[in-house]
Amino acid sequence: MHEQPRAKWVLAAGAAVQLLTGIPAAWGIFQKPVMEDYGFSRGQATLGFAILVAAYGLGCLLGGYLQDAKGPRTAGLLGTALLGGGFVAAAFVPQGNAVLFLLIFSLPAGLGSAFLAPSVLACVQKWYADKKGFATGVTGIATGLSGAFLTLFVRLVGGHLGMRICFGALGGVMLAVCGAGAAVLRDPPDQSAVQAGSETDLPPKQMLRTRQYRLCVAAVALAAPPVLLFSPDILSIAAERGLAEELAQWCVVIGSAASAAGRLACPALSDRLGRKPVLYGVYAGLAAGTLAFAFAGGWLVAAAYAALTFFYSGGAAVQPALNTDLFGLKHAGVNYGFIALGMSAGSLLSYAGSQLLPMGARHWAAGACALAGLVCIALVKPLNKSR
């Protein structure tokens, strides 16, 4: 680990950026007011969420290339412009124009969040090369708490002034905070220390040909349905199962807190126990959480949903460290981007499932995906053992 004071500043800046990028975790609080203020159907609002997450996966790839070529600051500042600009633009979408909403909000906001993610993750892992799980966990706490912050922001600003002003105000906050954080990001000056102890540094073309890559991207895709099949509708699900509407909103806040805890605990634990053992627990937890969620009522809905967000976010925070363990740090940004394509696939799969499957079938599908992801992780072996 680099002991220069700048390492702590980079970590703090990365956490500040991530505090405003956890939109998927909070979309449940956006869904209903977006439908009401913009005149969208449930399917249109959910598609906006699905496109945003799919764009995130693609953006991680593009942002990874930019991060590796031009450095984390350039990628981060461009991501800030896309993210904040998308939110500001959403304030001007005409009533009922779902296509324009997708084009000027969902796509740029998803891409912008993704440009920021590999910039932060790759940068902090390089500064904390011997404590990658810890560094990922610290920034992950901010990502998890992002859902709680956005929930409170939407309730206070959107509830009183409407979603258009809320989107514009959020865009301004994102441009200021993420822009300042991205400006601090910089790779460590001593790159030899980053590579110390690394036996493998695969460029993207070689990584894509490995069995390990295919298994990892499949596992990432399969982790999404246990949460994304339900998160856009979590408020209505909670209300249908016995929670009053004003209390149902706390499901998002509680889920966000659990997400933050998962993003801290799982990667830190993986530094001690190993990445794969922790990921076994993550996918087993997703399967068990899906089963509990299927039968939960009242406040148990919030508890079961919190379990799902804990394990989903914990796995998402461990995966970047597993990637660099397998494929090295030299090309961490773009290699992470290729892994994140699994998020795009998982998002689109979840959207299709949420539109085509009744609620009972969604639970079965989510549990099956979690178990299939567990099998994928079990089959991943170090590169030197698979040759």
Rank of each mutant, 00 (worst) to 15 (best):
G28M: 09
I29E: 08
L61R: 07
L11C: 11
G28A: 11
L52A: 07
A54P: 07
G14W: 03
S41K: 02
L19E: 03
G48N: 11
G63F: 06
F49S: 08
V53Q: 06
Q31C: 02
Y38E: 05
I51Y: 02
A45T: 10
A26T: 06
C60H: 02
V17E: 01
Q31S: 14
A54G: 11
E36G: 04
V53E: 04
Q31P: 00
G63K: 06
G14F: 04
L62H: 11
I29K: 12
K32C: 00
I51M: 05
R42W: 12
Y38G: 08
K32D: 10
G28R: 04
A55I: 07
V17P: 00
V17L: 03
F49Y: 15
P24V: 01
Y65M: 15
G57Y: 03
G57R: 02
A25P: 00
D37I: 12
Y56T: 02
A50P: 07
G64W: 07
V34H: 05
L52S: 07
A16M: 14
Q44E: 15
A12R: 11
A12E: 02
K32P: 00
I23K: 00
I51H: 01
K32V: 13
Q44T: 12
Q18D: 05
G64A: 08
A12H: 00
A26L: 08
L58W: 15
L66D: 06
Q67C: 15
C60A: 12
L58N: 11
L11S: 11
G48K: 03
W27P: 00
G22K: 03
G22N: 01
Q31G: 04
D68P: 12
A16R: 02
G64L: 06
T46W: 06
F40Y: 14
D68N: 15
T46C: 04
M35T: 11
A12D: 05
G22H: 04
A55F: 05
L62N: 12
L20P: 08
G28Q: 10
L66Y: 01
A16K: 03
L19R: 01
A54E: 00
Y56K: 01
G64T: 09
A15S: 13
C60D: 03
V17R: 00
F40R: 07
V53R: 01
G43A: 15
G28D: 09
P33N: 12
Q31M: 15
G22C: 03
Q67V: 13
I23G: 00
Y38K: 12
G63M: 07
F49I: 05
K32L: 13
A16L: 14
V53D: 02
L19T: 07
Y56H: 09
G28N: 10
A45K: 07
A50S: 14
L19K: 04
W27K: 02
A45G: 13
